[in-house]
């Protein structure tokens, strides 16, 4: 889901071609794994089908035809919903969370409350795990602890990100 939402969010700043979308995505989020053009194309057609984007125009040139996509109102609402909904806490969330934070900053949404919501969600799960741990046997304790330590690491990341939000906003908003 997240690539679709990210591309949608990138469209919020104005209509653009699929190729430009890939470049913009790679520049901000694709540090390790750049998007394949096919991925962009497939995602955009799904978004188009769901009515979240519309084709703004088609250019005919030497190569293949190039469609210009624009976000619809439904698309904007969808991005907002995605950002507001905390992720289910699980290990290795950082890339999604990072993406969301940057997206929020890019689209001028409140990244702070995004982070707060996420930390509340993390802590809620941690409470649950802690409860299970306290009442469980040793195996439960060890398993819960594993999860807890990972969640704690995420939570620390959330806190440190929250503390550096201003810096980040400057970096992503040229």
């Amino acid at each position: 889901m997240s690539i679709g939402h990210t591309l949608l969010a990138l469209l919020e700043s104005g209509p653009c071609h699929g190729y430009d979308l890939k470049r913009a995505f790679d520049a901000r989020f694709g540090h390790d794994r750049p998007l394949h053009y096919g991925q962009v194309y497939a995602t955009m057609s799904r978004l188009l089908k769901n009515g979240l984007v519309e084709v703004d125009g088609i250019e005919h040139g030497d190569g293949p035809e190039r469609k210009r996509y624009a976000i619809t109102d439904a698309g904007i609402t969808d991005v907002g919903r995605w950002l507001a909904e905390p992720e289910k806490p699980e290990p290795y969330l950082q890339s999604v969370l990072y993406t969301k934070v940057v997206v929020a900053l890019l689209t001028g949404r409140d990244a702070d409350s995004l982070l707060d919501a996420q930390r509340t969600e993390h802590l809620r799960l941690m409470r649950e795990l802690t409860r299970r741990k306290v009442s469980g046997d040793l195996a439960d304790q060890l398993i819960c602890d594993h999860a807890l330590f990972h969640l704690e690491a995420d939570l620390r990341w959330l806190e440190i990100t929250a503390a550096r939000l201003d810096q980040l906003a400057e970096a992503v908003r040229p």
Binding site: D116, M126, R127, L129, T130, E152
Partner: peptide, 14 residues
């Protein structure tokens, strides 16, 4: 300031 400690709480205030 530790999340694992805060996890023993019912509610948190930041």
């Amino acid at each position: 300031h530790e999340a694992r400690v805060a996890a023993y709480s019912d509610r948190e205030v930041v």
